[in-house]
């Protein structure tokens, strides 16, 4: 990593984070959503200069680091107590979303198979990273990958605004709102942002359920790679794909949850770790905002967006109903 190349962008992220905090304190609005808004406004008005790009692109690293540190705030006892039903819901919603998008894309709207599969992976697992992972495994064409990624980004932008409003209107508890965002929204960054914007509890539930979904990426990539390889008469992919695609920061998150649950860290240390992940999230979300470019969203095709919208509405409503019944 060339430090001097990254420094201007990193300083910009830090300035954005401090500004978001200051504005949040005076406006009484979520600092995380304000951080995304600052990045979004900057990139869509003045644009991001080339020399800032490398530093700003590190925002995914800070998001991952923040998620690892969040492990210290998670009670393993709570996870074990309610983890079973939530895990079932995660697998159920993921499978339903994936199959619904595939069915609508292939049988109702007649989209190309691979484009349908990319949309299904992006909507059901972890947004753009799932699109890219599956695109590599099924040898999708570049424009199909760009189309699917733009569709996912469009829904990320919409859900960042709509979910907090619906959460407030329905007066959802932190647990229900967090788990709902975690099982039904697309990309990890927006899920964590709206979760913590609602409440600390919602943020933790949103992250935990989203990480459970992300952990399924290896299985989905393996399944798609096997399906398309068989269709083309090629070699079947190895089980090693499961490990290669597994999001490794989930392991860091779990390791820290075990360490913190063992009582090794003092309350002052836990408080510092919590402050550290809050700062990392604000940094990450300023960068995330710069990725929401209106020009990219205009590339979304109407049909792929409609396919994802129908599947999203169905699974979002279904998961909220189940969560309200369970909690």
């Amino acid at each position: 990593m060339n430090g001097s190349r990254l420094l201007p962008g990193l300083l910009t992220l830090c300035l954005g984070a401090i500004l978001a905090r200051a504005l949040a304190a005076s406006l009484g609005f979520s600092h995380l959503l304000l951080a995304i808004a600052l990045g979004f406004v900057a990139t869509n008005t003045v644009g991001v200069p080339d020399r800032l790009e490398p530093g700003i692109a590190t925002h995914k690293l800070w998001l991952g680091g923040g998620i690892v540190l969040m492990g210290a705030s998670i009670s393993l006892e709570t996870v074990l107590e309610v983890g079973g039903p939530v895990l079932l819901l995660v697998v159920g919603v993921t499978t339903t979303t994936l199959l619904t998008v595939e069915l609508l894309a292939r049988n109702v709207f007649g989209l190309a198979d691979r484009l349908g599969s990319l949309l299904a992976a992006g909507a059901s697992i972890c947004g753009v990273s799932a699109v890219v992972a599956v695109a590599g495994a099924v040898r999708a064409r570049e424009e199909q990958t760009a189309y699917a990624a733009a569709t996912v980004l469009l829904f990320d932008a919409i859900t960042i605004v709509v979910y907090p409003i619906v959460g407030d209107l329905l007066n959802l508890s932190g647990t229900v709102f967090g788990a709902w965002a975690g099982v039904s929204m697309f990309s990890t960054g927006p899920v964590v942002a709206v979760g913590f914007a609602h409440s600390e509890v919602a943020g933790q539930w949103a992250t935990m359920t989203k990480l459970s979904r992300n952990a399924l990426i290896g299985v989905v990539v393996l399944a798609y790679a096997s399906y398309y390889a068989r269709e083309a008469g090629g070699r079947r992919p190895s089980v090693r794909t499961l490990w290669d695609e597994f999001p490794k920061f989930v392991l860091g998150f779990l390791a820290l949850a075990v360490v913190a649950s063992a009582g090794v860290l003092s309350s002052a240390q836990l408080n510092s770790i919590e402050n550290a992940y809050n700062w990392l999230f604000v940094l990450a979300f300023v960068g995330l905002g710069t990725e929401i470019r209106l020009s990219d969203l205009r590339n979304t095709g109407a049909t792929p967006a409609l396919v994802v919208l129908l599947a999203f509405l169905a699974t979002s409503a279904l998961s909220l109903t189940v969560l309200l019944a369970v909690f």
């Binding site: 995914k60 690293l61 800070w62 998001l63 991952g64 680091g65 998620i67 690892v68 540190l69 492990g71 210290a72 999001p247 490794k248 920061f249 392991l251 860091g252 820290l256 360490v259 090794v264 860290l265 002052a268 240390q269 510092s272 770790i273 919590e274 402050n275 550290a276 809050n278 700062w279 990392l280």
Partner: peptide, 27 residues
Amino acid sequence: LERDWQSVLVGAATVALVSLLELQIPW
């Protein structure tokens, strides 16, 4: 290192600084 492992290192380095050097991180 792939980015996910880098994220784990960022987390581990922060925990090490906080627990070994008693670094206080304000909010």
